[in-house]
Write a protein that binds this DNA or RNA. Sequence first.
DNA 1: GAGCTTTGTCAACACTATGTCGATTTATAT
DNA 2: ATATAAATCGACATAGTGTTGACAAAGCTC
Lengths: 219, 219
Amino acid sequence: MGEAAPSTRRRTARKGDLTERRLMREAEALLAARPLASIGVDEIATAAGISRSSFYFYFASREALLRALGEQAHHEVLTSAERWLNRTHEPPEEVITRALADNLALWRRRGPVLRALYDTRNSDPESAALWRAIARRYVDATAAQIDRERDAGLAHPAPPDARQLAAALTGMNLRAFYDASQRSPSPQGDRELVQTLATVWIRTVYRHGSVQPSRTPAS
Amino acid sequence: MGEAAPSTRRRTARKGDLTERRLMREAEALLAARPLASIGVDEIATAAGISRSSFYFYFASREALLRALGEQAHHEVLTSAERWLNRTHEPPEEVITRALADNLALWRRRGPVLRALYDTRNSDPESAALWRAIARRYVDATAAQIDRERDAGLAHPAPPDARQLAAALTGMNLRAFYDASQRSPSPQGDRELVQTLATVWIRTVYRHGSVQPSRTPAS
DNA sequence: GAGCTTTGTCAACACTATGTCGATTTATAT
DNA sequence: ATATAAATCGACATAGTGTTGACAAAGCTC
């Protein structure tokens, strides 16, 4: 059955590419419902319409597939963290709140993958490396931001090392977002969570940690 | 072979009790070196000097054994959290710093078990319940403390709900201690970590969050 | 479209690990 | 001493992983 052929670049119209995507899509769907450990290669393969052994033509293991999904999420994280790095003239409260909300949104979108990747870091070294790369991105961005605000005299000075502080704060976020992404999404609850985290960030990093917006009142 | 018998209660000189302990001891030792998932029942049984199938006479599964270890740690957590609840006249900085140091010490002592328990919460519902019980203890204690300090006018007032704030902060601790308990213990690094976390707690909870990390030199 | 290569598919196997059974041995109490 | 309870183990049955080799389907080249 031949119809109007896609003229020029029919490059990479590979059939296997389709199957590979289906595999990843189905895996992520399953992952949304239950932990990776409880999902068999069988299930993923069947869901994608191929036999279990065919699965191994595409991925070396369940973990390899997870890593492929993780790489996708990695890219989303990059852009998210990049944006966070962009200095701006807005008041800190808003920048931080927006960054946190963005981040929570990312976790809502890719939560299953991010959680699974995080959970596997102990049993699969490759996943661990990928996770570290992702986490590092955030810590770096945060530490840089803190240093910048310190230089500008807006943030509490050095004693707590910027990197360590950044690690603690992003660790808190990770934990909170991991959990939140498991609960059903509620705009109300999400806003509260972001607000709580923002409070911690602002009070910890900035001077006169008054969460009350702008114009510092006389002390 | 009778020697000076322990006179009265030679109650429960069961042989199996000994084996059970050995099982738990060896399991914890293995757990210190590598993740639970990579440890076979075989290894634990052999290390304790019994056959694999005999293992099941004592525990229904690897996870059941882990839970038994978790219960032990649970008790240590109780006393630790209880102490944290005891109100005192010392300045907040010291109370918090000491509580955090205590907690880190607990993680250093029982890290392998706590980490494994945390890691298994996704695959084993029973472990999840146990973990929640432990985590809850901390959140409750913290929330209560925050409320008390708020009533006393020492802490920032309500907007961030005490419980949610407590959850965020203890989440941060969990993450930090989990990681720290994997690194080789360094008094230097440990002190810095505690100091960093204490800074976050104090600045977040208390008013005028000026945290002098021990006599600030003139700048 | 005949022939060639690359790509994709799968059943059958080998391996590892778990948990269960029944038979048997070892300890303990009376 | 002997009955009972506690403890041990080998031999299954089951479930899941990853590999191999044989085979089919596309995709290209002439």
